[in-house]
Simulated scan of single mutants.
Amino acid sequence: MKSTIKLIQKSRKYSEAFKKSIVKDFESGKFSVPQLERIHTISNVTIYRWIYKYSTINQPGQRIVEMENSSTKKLKSLEAKVKELECMVGQKQIQIDYLEKVIDLANQELHIDLKKNSNTPLSNGSVTKRK
């Protein structure tokens, strides 16, 4: 006897609040449809259907067209800017460490106090301290 195996189709039901939150994320510009598709593992056709149904911005009869990779290009440019700024901060920190080391060496070897507190008297010029 030959048995037949029938595949059970899996279908998910989403609440209306969840659908509206997806549409709200799209409309706010936080995520593009492909990003929402990857995050929630929902097909882009379904997401577009929800947008047409629940959108407060989109009017009936209008088609939503996203520029190809527009949001991903913007995200990559912002990530590049962050990386550049982090590099600049790192360089400035190296300069600060270097200058602090020079000040410490000047204090130890030349006996010149370059770090002055507000309550110390003014110096008499570049006279070195006597031991």
Rank of each mutant, 00 (worst) to 15 (best):
M1C: 01
I8S: 03
Q9W: 06
S11R: 11
S11M: 11
Y14N: 05
Y14P: 02
S15F: 11
E16S: 05
A17L: 06
A17V: 09
F18P: 00
K19P: 02
K19F: 02
K20N: 01
S21T: 05
S21P: 01
I22G: 01
V23T: 02
V23D: 03
K24V: 01
K24C: 06
D25A: 13
F26A: 05
F26L: 12
E27I: 04
S28E: 09
G29H: 05
S32C: 15
V33C: 14
Q35R: 06
L36R: 14
R38P: 08
I39R: 14
H40V: 01
T41I: 06
T41H: 09
S43F: 03
S43H: 07
N44T: 08
T46P: 03
Y48C: 11
Y48I: 10
R49N: 15
W50Q: 09
Y52H: 14
Y52E: 07
K53Q: 03
Y54H: 15
Y54N: 06
S55W: 13
S55Y: 07
T56A: 04
I57T: 10
I57W: 07
I57F: 12
N58Y: 07
R63A: 04
R63K: 15
I64E: 00
E66G: 08
E66S: 11
E68Y: 14
E68R: 14
E68L: 14
S70I: 10
T72E: 09
K73V: 06
K73N: 04
K73D: 07
K74I: 06
K74Y: 06
L75Q: 12
K76A: 10
S77D: 13
L78G: 01
L78Q: 02
A80F: 06
K83Q: 13
K83R: 15
E84G: 11
E84V: 11
E84Y: 11
E86N: 08
E86F: 05
G90W: 12
Q91D: 15
K92D: 03
I94A: 09
D97I: 12
Y98V: 13
L99V: 04
K101D: 13
V102Y: 08
I103V: 09
I103C: 06
N107D: 12
Q108G: 02
E109P: 00
E109M: 01
H111M: 07
D113V: 03
L114Q: 00
K115Y: 00
K115L: 01
K116E: 03
K116M: 02
N117Q: 02
T120W: 01
P121C: 13
P121R: 15
P121I: 10
L122E: 12
N124A: 05
K129D: 01
K129C: 01
R130H: 04
K131Y: 14
K131N: 15
